[in-house]
């Protein structure tokens, strides 16, 4: 084939695909899971709505970007981002050192400690340190003691969490040798299995569980054990993810996000979706 034919072919492919071609970033494609309520969830009409959608719309309006959302299962968001299927990921993703090796993050727009959810009437309802916040970045005696207790109490238990999350890394480090870890594709699936009794405890972000507890069929569930935040595994907060090569897009996004955080818009969305301000 001659090179002009190749160009024609490429041009054809260009016109019928959604390219991330905008050199001056007019249009961007943003991936969300669409089933991580209330961060991003699908409503009955099939539209993705939620806390992160509101932030995105705000940021895009400020940055004069045309943003479109695509649904992408969680286990494909980072490979999809690096492969170029979309330009930004907003999916309650914690900023961690491990992920920073592959991708870049915006400034954090929320913080959400991780927590455990279990059956009110089950054996784990009496876990110690319930409601206590453990900051792993301090790495002090208190956090060590809390982790030891946690390991003891979860020994032999079935723990459900979402694949490829900070919770999974946490469990890999602290729980793998004592508990049975079940990795799910979505957080909804471990909720369903917790209600069905296949797992003893579900492990995810506090903010996500607030959404779970608001659902009518979750009336028998409650938070158990301590909450954890910070440190190299859990990271400083939640941000939007970018390819390492797209520094320019990241700068545009950060500038707009900073403005939205400063004037209290993001806090307002947080109150709407979570009833608490999680930007702090």
């Amino acid at each position: 084939m001659t090179s002009s034919r190749w160009i024609a072919l490429a041009a054809l492919a260009l016109t019928c695909s959604t390219p991330a071609m905008a050199k001056d970033w007019k249009t961007v494609t943003v991936a969300m899971e669409g089933s991580y309520a209330p961060w991003n969830q699908t409503d009955a009409s099939g539209k993705i709505v939620g806390f992160e959608v509101d932030i995105l719309n705000d940021v895009c309006a400020r940055a004069k970007l045309e943003c479109s959302i695509v649904a992408q299962d969680w286990d494909g968001v980072i490979p999809g981002l690096t492969a170029g299927k979309f330009d930004i990921v907003m999916d309650g993703m914690s900023i961690t050192e491990e992920r920073m090796k592959t991708i870049d993050f915006s400034i954090p727009y929320a913080s959400s400690p991780v927590a455990f959810l279990a059956d009110k009437n089950g054996p784990l309802a009496q876990m110690s340190n319930t409601g206590k916040m453990i900051d792993l970045s301090k790495d002090d005696a208190e956090s060590k003691a809390a982790l030891d207790t946690l390991r003891k109490e979860l020994t032999g238990k079935n723990v459900g969490l979402q694949v490829s999350t900070t919770e999974a890394t946490f469990a890999d480090k602290y729980l793998k040798d004592v508990a049975n870890i079940h990795e799910y594709k979505t957080t909804d699936e471990h909720d369903l299995d917790l209600m069905a009794g296949r797992i003893d405890v579900a492990f995810a972000d506090t903010t996500y569980f607030l959404g779970t507890l608001a659902k009518p069929d979750a009336k028998d569930l409650e938070f158990v054990g301590p909450q954890f935040k910070g440190g190299p595994i859990l990271g400083p907060g939640i941000g939007a993810a970018f390819r390492k090569t797209d520094k320019d897009l990241q700068d545009i996004y950060n500038k707009a996000l900073k403005a939205a955080l400063d004037d209290g818009s993001v806090s307002k969305y947080s109150m709407q979706w979570f009833k608490i301000d999680i930007t702090k």
Binding site: S3, I7, L14, P19, A20, M21, T245
Partner: peptide, 17 residues
Amino acid sequence: VARSTGSIGSADILNMP
């Protein structure tokens, strides 16, 4: 393919829908 033919820049990505 698109990069080698120069129809997109060397840092751009052509997504397969």
